[in-house]
Amino acid sequence: MENSCEIAKEKAGGPAALAKALGGVSSQAVSQWKKVPAERVLDVERLTGVSRHELRPDVFGAAPQPEAAE
């Protein structure tokens, strides 16, 4: 979770860029995130491409596994 949060920050161009893209949150707050707040996960996923399941498996569960072809 922590690592996924850091990856999301990097993909967004850093905490300041992610904060600006999200709006309503300071870059200082984003810098301090150890995990993305649950209410921000879907926006962070949309902006960075980092899955909600990676960002907050405690909220969204493990990523669904693709079904095996028969």
Rank of each mutant, 00 (worst) to 15 (best):
A38R: 09
P57Q: 06
T48R: 02
G23W: 02
A17S: 14
M1D: 05
S4M: 11
A17G: 05
K20M: 07
K34R: 15
L22E: 02
R40T: 08
V44S: 01
P57R: 07
I7Q: 10
L18M: 04
E67C: 08
V36K: 00
C5V: 14
E10K: 15
V25K: 10
A21V: 07
A38G: 02
E67I: 15
S4I: 09
G61A: 14
E10D: 09
A21P: 05
D58A: 05
P64D: 05
A12M: 11
A16Y: 01
A8I: 11
P37G: 03
S51Y: 09
Q28G: 10
P15D: 14
V59F: 14
V30A: 02
L47S: 00
D43I: 03
T48P: 06
F60Q: 12
A12D: 06
D58P: 12
M1A: 13
K20V: 06
K11H: 07
S51N: 12
R40A: 03
D43A: 14
A12K: 01
W33F: 00
S27R: 12
G61N: 11
P64K: 13
Q65Y: 03
R56F: 13
S31L: 12
H53Y: 15
G13A: 14
A29T: 15
A12W: 10
L42K: 11
D43H: 06
P64F: 09
T48E: 03
Q28V: 07
A63F: 05
H53P: 11
Q28W: 07
H53N: 15
G14M: 11
V41H: 01
S31D: 10
A16E: 11
A21N: 06
S51K: 12
V30T: 07
P57F: 03
E67D: 12
R56M: 11
W33G: 00
I7F: 10
A68V: 15
L22D: 05
L22P: 06
G14S: 08
T48I: 07
A8K: 08
D43T: 10
E2Q: 07
D58G: 13
L22H: 02
V59P: 09
G49N: 13
D43P: 00
K11S: 02
K34L: 04
G23I: 01
R46H: 03
E6H: 04
L55K: 08
G61S: 12
G14D: 12
R46P: 00
P66N: 08
A17W: 04
Q28F: 06
R40C: 09
A8D: 04
A16W: 00
S27Y: 07
V50A: 05
S26F: 02
E6P: 00
H53L: 14
K20F: 01
F60T: 07
A63R: 13
Q65L: 15
Q65G: 03
R40V: 04
E54L: 15
Q32W: 05
G61Y: 13
A19F: 01
